[in-house]
Design a binder for these strands. Structure first.
Lengths: 226, 226
DNA sequence: ACAAAAGTGTTTTCTCTACACCCATGA
DNA sequence: TCATGGGTGTAGAGAAAACACTTTTGT
C-alpha cells in the first residue's frame, strides 16, 4: 500500500478521432479548442478520465456530449505519453477512433462546440500531436476494414454495393474494380440482399443489402490487403 | 489552466510482456509479485511511470532493471483502465510487449526478483488482468511476425532456417512446410547466407544466415497470414 | 544401411486482377 | 440512342500449399 503512495499521478485524457462518411468522402469531426493553450485552434474532441470510469467510458461520454450519440463503434488506438506533448501541463492521452453515421448525429450538439467535418485529405493544422493520432487511427481503420466489414458502422443500415465500394475507396484512398469488389464482398457471405432497389444513383437501380445480423461481430478473411 | 485543475489524477503503470525463445518454445518471463495485494502470485513485470519519462521510457527502465538489457524491441499493446482492475487502488496500466534473446539476459538481475521463464501454453494463474494482457500481446506479436521478420530479436545474431522455422511454429502454434517456409523467407531477400554451417542440429549441417543490416527496419510483404 | 534434416523442384490449387460483355433505364 | 452503373463470366498472372526427390552425414 505504502508502495503506491510514492509515485506521481497524472491527468489522463481521451482524444477521439471521429470518422464519418458523406458525399463520397471520409471525414473527420474537428473542434476549435475551447481553452488555453492553443484556444481556437483545431483539435480532436477530448476529455479527462474521471474517477469512476474507464477510458472507454470516458470516450463514450465525450462522444455522447459532442455528437449526441450512444452505441458508437470505438477502438483504442494508442496511448501518448511524452512528457512534453502538451506544453502547459503533463497529460497522458489515450486515443480512440470512432465510426459514426453522419446522418444520425445531432448537429445541435456539435454546433455548441463549433464542430466541423473535414475531409481526411484536406485537414487543417492541428494542435499538439493530434495529427499523429489521426495518422495512426486511419491505419487502424484500414486494418479493421481489411479484416471485417465496416459498412454498417459508417453507412445507413441498408446500402448498395456501389455505396460500400465508394466507402472502401475513401478509406483506402484508391479505387477498386467494381466487378471484383462485388464478388469479393458477396463471397464473404455476410450480407443479405433485400428485395428493393435504390434507383437514385443509377438508371437500372441497385439492390440494397444489409449486414446479416449474426455476422456483425465475426472476424472475416481478408477483404483488402494492407 | 484552471480547467486542468479540477480533474482527477491517476497512477499510471507499465506492464511488460517479455517474450523469449528457448528449446523450441516461446516463453514468457514472469515474477512473483513483491508486495501486497496478491504478494507472491505470478505477475508481469511492471512499474510506475515517473514525472519526466514517457511510458516507453518507463517500460525500458523496467526491462533494464529486471533483465539487465538495453536496446530491447518494444511495442505498445493496449492501455487498461477499468476502475476496478486492481482492487486496492486505481491504476491505469499501459501494456508493452518485449522481445529478448534469452541467452543474453542477466540471470542475476532476474533472480533478485525470483523471475522464471514459462512456456506460453503452460502459464500459471496470473494476477489481475495480466492474462488478458498476454493474450493481446501474443496476437500483436503474431501480426508483427507476419509482416516483418522477428528472427533477429528472438534468436542469436546468426541462425539456421530450421531455427527460424521452429521459432515461427512456436509463435503461431502450428507447423510450416519446411520447403515452402525456406522459399518464402529467402524470397523476401532480407537474409545474408554466411559461409559456415551449424552441424549440431542435423547430420548434413545447415548454413547460418543473418539479417541484412539495412533490412532490419523494413516492413515486408506478408510472411504468414494471420 | 538408415534416419533425419538440408535443400531443390514440380504440380495443383486458389486468389487476385484485368477486362469483356450483356442488362436496364433515365435523359 | 446513348451513357451509366448493375451485374456476370472468363482468362492469365502469381502466390500458397502439398509433396516428391536428391544430398549429406552421424550413428
Amino acid at each position: 500500500m505504502e508502495f503506491y503512495k510514492q509515485h506521481p499521478r497524472f491527468l489522463v485524457a481521451v482524444d477521439c478521432v471521429v470518422f464519418g462518411y458523406e458525399e463520397g468522402e471520409l471525414k473527420l469531426l474537428l473542434y476549435p479548442r475551447a481553452f488555453e493553450p492553443e484556444k481556437g485552434n483545431w483539435s480532436l474532441m477530448g476529455g479527462f478520465v474521471q474517477e469512476n470510469e474507464s477510458s472507454e467510458q470516458a470516450a463514450c461520454r465525450v462522444l455522447k456530449q459532442t455528437t449526441g450519440l450512444n452505441d458508437i463503434f470505438l477502438e483504442q488506438v494508442n496511448a501518448f505519453s511524452e512528457p512534453a506533448r502538451e506544453p502547459s501541463e503533463r497529460v497522458i492521452s489515450i486515443t480512440y477512433y470512432a465510426l459514426i453515421k453522419i446522418g444520425r448525429y445531432k448537429k445541435s450538439k456539435a454546433d455548441e462546440f463549433g464542430a466541423k467535418w473535414w475531409p481526411v485529405n484536406e485537414l487543417p493544422p492541428l494542435i499538439f500531436d493530434h495529427s499523429e493520432m489521426i495518422q495512426q487511427s486511419l491505419k487502424k481503420l484500414q486494418q479493421k476494414a481489411g479484416s471485417s466489414l465496416v459498412g454498417s458502422e459508417l453507412l445507413a443500415s441498408k446500402f448498395t454495393l456501389l455505396q460500400l465500394r465508394k466507402l472502401y475507396e475513401a478509406i483506402y484512398q484508391r479505387s477498386f474494380d467494381p466487378g471484383n469488389f462485388r464478388k469479393k464482398i458477396l463471397s464473404l457471405d455476410v450480407l443479405d440482399k433485400l428485395d428493393h432497389k435504390n434507383s437514385t444513383e443509377s438508371k437500372k437501380g441497385a439492390y440494397y443489402y444489409k449486414v446479416k445480423p449474426n455476422k456483425l461481430e465475426k472476424e472475416l478473411e481478408r477483404i483488402v490487403k494492407y
